[in-house]
C-alpha cells in the first residue's frame, strides 16, 4: 500500500543523503520526496511517498526515527490529510489543438505560464487523482515534457 510520511528533520547538510541512503541501503522504495525549510529555520520538513506492507512500513518508520537527525516521523496515511503536488506540462501546440489544450487546462484550473510558436506550458496543482486525470486528457494532444514537484502533505483539522 502507498503511504505518505511527514518527516521532521534537522536542517543540516547531509540529512537528505542519510534519509535517501537509508531507503536505498534497506531496499525500501521512494516514489517521491520533497524537502524544504520550515518556519523554524533549523528544521526541514520532508514529505516522502513510499510503498510497503505493514511490516515494511513499521521498519521504515523505525529506521527513520533511528537516524539521529530525524526528529519526528508521522505516517499521514493512517489519518485524514490533504496533499498537493505542482506540475508543469509542456504541450506540443499547433493551430488545431491550442484551444482544446486551454479548455482542458481551464477545467483543472491550470494556468498558462509560457507560450511559444510550438509549445504551451501549463502549471497546475492538485492531488494525485486530479493530476492523473488531467494528464490523461492532455496525452492525446501531445505532451512534450512534464516536471512535477512530488507530493507535500499535511494532516487535516487541528491535529
Amino acid at each position: 500500500m502507498k503511504h505518505t510520511l511527514s518527516v521532521l528533520v534537522e536542517n543540516e547538510f547531509g540529512v537528505l543523503s542519510r534519509v535517501a541512503g537509508l531507503f536505498s541501503a534497506r531496499g525500501f522504495n521512494i516514489e517521491s520526496l520533497c524537502v524544504a525549510e520550515t518556519l523554524d529555520p533549523t528544521l526541514s520538513l520532508m514529505t516522502i511517498v513510499t510503498r510497503g506492507d505493514e511490516m515494511i512500513m513499521e521498519q521504515i518508520t523505525k529506521q527513520l526515527n533511528k537516524l539521529i537527525n530525524v526528529i519526528k516521523v508521522t505516517d499521514l496515511s493512517a489519518r485524514k490529510f490533504v496533499d498537493r503536488e505542482l506540475i508543469l506540462i509542456k504541450m506540443k501546440a499547433t493551430k488545431t489543438n491550442r484551444a482544446e489544450i486551454l479548455r482542458i487546462s481551464d477545467i483543472f484550473r491550470g494556468k498558462v505560464v509560457d507560450v511559444s510558436h510550438k509549445t504551451l506550458t501549463i502549471e497546475a496543482t492538485g492531488d494525485e487523482g486530479k493530476l492523473a486525470a488531467m494528464i490523461e486528457l492532455l496525452k492525446p494532444l501531445g505532451i512534450k515534457e512534464i516536471a512535477r514537484t512530488g507530493k507535500i502533505a499535511m494532516l487535516r483539522g487541528a491535529q
Partner: peptide, 11 residues
C-alpha cells in the same frame, strides 16, 4: 533497546 530490531525478521 533498538526498536528496529523488533519485528524486523520475525513477527
Amino acid at each position: 533497546i533498538d526498536p528496529t530490531s523488533i519485528s524486523k525478521n520475525i513477527k
